[in-house]
């Protein structure tokens, strides 16, 4: 049972990559459907709708980032992978903001993206503004990322 620490820590890393990745996959997929619809009408808007489609993709990257930092901190990517159960649980907890907020915000952001793609379809000159609406949602993914990073970086120095 002493070895459970690494299990929990890896579970956390996996969840961050997994949930945030799922959210982004769903989100980018939704964006892609809407964007493809626009392209059938006007192929020249490809560049603009592509950007809007990709906006919900960042959560997956943040998830990957958290997973990677965790893996390197707990020594899975080389080094000794021995950590206490308490620390393992701490890593798991630290990964959760990114995992859960990443999943939810990617899907919500995708909904904003789809709406913005509709804006670009009708009024391409409003691209600059329409890009901001999905970017607003991303703020919360960034805040979650921040807390996850700071926690993971901090856990290493704790004496538990």
């Amino acid at each position: 049972m002493e070895n459970l620490g690494i299990v929990f820590a890896l579970l956390g890393a996996a969840l961050a990559a997994l949930l945030a990745g799922c959210g982004s996959a769903i989100g980018v997929g939704m964006g892609g459907q809407a964007a493809a619809g626009v392209i059938t009408e006007d192929p020249s808007k490809f560049g603009k709708v592509l950007i809007l489609q990709l906006l919900p993709g960042t959560q997956g990257i943040y998830g990957l980032l958290i997973a990677f930092i965790t893996l390197s901190q707990i020594g899975v990517l080389g080094g000794s992978a021995v950590i206490s159960t308490a620390k393992g649980l701490l890593y798991l907890a630290a990964c959760l903001p990114m995992a859960i907020v990443g999943y939810t915000s990617a899907i919500r952001q995708a909904k904003a993206s789809v709406a913005s793609i509709a804006v670009v379809a009708k009024r391409p000159e409003q691209f600059g503004k329409s890009m901001i609406f999905p970017a607003m949602v991303e703020t919360y993914a960034i805040l979650a990322l921040l807390i996850s990073i700071l926690s993971i970086m901090g856990i290493n120095g704790l004496a538990v």
Partner: peptide, 13 residues
């Protein structure tokens, strides 16, 4: 704080 997040994202990926 997105400056930190995006900067780290580039480096870590």
């Amino acid at each position: 704080s997105r400056l930190l997040a995006l900067g780290l994202a580039t480096g870590v990926i």
